[in-house]
């Protein structure tokens, strides 16, 4: 744990000294951009290209579609990094762009529960009956992130992003154990969707603005989109295959 903490702090220190930007960076704003991407002045990220078999000069801009201030986005970024931290295997949630993934998803069908049954009346129900909140995921995240900040202030009189890793974990664990009071949703449920969204952002195809440079796939030994395995599926040997994004079918 102590090691992790140091790493977390030193990463923040690193960012403060890079001079690319301040403040916004702490939450992982551009950390994602630093892994496997070149970041030019106007924030346009360009694939470095060499490690990619099919390089068709894709440019992409990451930005916030849901959160309206850096403070909230930074809390989200630090929380997801605790859930899926950087380690010797490779980047963590921030490095993978997970905070952008979540932000962007919250601005769309996922955040508005567009394809789910949202008619009342609403009752808490039993666990076996599943999601029964009248809140959309967007509303849950907005409240949940604010609650995380509130807990940090209450417990440590500090912003969440200034806590050390162990303190952040303590707060996240309180959510997991349903010990934090939330309105219209349990903190345990918020924790569950936060965890799930983190994994989704790490491992979804990079077209969704997470899984930067397909590094999460590389860590896991998953080759992403491949046309066929018919010629290797009988091989006894484990196959290491350079991953491909589904975007290779779209350009």
């Amino acid at each position: 744990m102590a090691d992790d903490q140091k790493k977390g702090l030193s990463r923040r220190d690193f960012l403060k000294t890079t001079g690319i930007a301040t403040g916004a960076l702490v939450g992982g704003g551009l950390i994602g951009g630093l892994v496997g991407y070149n970041v030019n002045k106007d924030g346009v990220q360009r694939k470095s290209g060499t490690e990619n078999a099919e390089d068709h000069d894709v440019t992409s801009v990451k930005g916030l579609m849901f959160f309206t201030n850096h403070a909230d986005f930074n809390v989200l970024s630090q929380a997801v990094e605790r859930i899926f931290p950087e380690d010797d295997l490779g980047p963590g949630a921030i490095g993978l762009g997970v905070p952008y993934f979540i932000d962007n998803q919250l601005a769309g069908n996922y955040g508005s529960n567009a394809r789910e049954y949202m008619q009342g009346p609403f009752f808490a129900g039993e666990a076996t009956q599943g999601y029964q909140s009248s809140l959309t995921r967007a509303e849950m995240f907005r409240q949940g992130i604010a609650k995380m900040e509130e807990e940090a202030q209450k417990r440590y009189q500090k912003p969440f992003v200034d806590l050390d890793g162990g303190q952040m974990d303590e707060i996240i664990t309180s959510f997991q154990k349903n010990e934090v009071e939330m309105k219209g949703v349990s903190s345990e449920f918020f924790f569950r969707i936060l965890r799930q969204a983190t994994l989704e952002g790490a491992y979804a195809d990079p077209i969704y603005n997470g899984n930067n440079n397909m590094d999460a796939w590389r860590m896991k030994g998953f080759p992403g989109h491949q046309f066929a395995y018919i010629n290797m599926i009988e091989d006894e040997k484990f196959q290491k295959i350079e991953p491909k994004s589904i975007s290779s079918m779209q350009h």
Partner: peptide
């Protein structure tokens, strides 16, 4: 596989569920 693009749009129609008759049936929202 995660957002179920090919499957039923529950905002239009779903089912309700309870484990037994004494439980209040609630919609399968997702």
């Amino acid at each position: 596989a995660i957002r179920y693009e090919l499957m039923q749009d529950l905002s239009k129609e779903t089912i309700t569920f309870r484990n037994h008759r004494k439980m209040r049936a609630l919609p399968m929202r997702q």
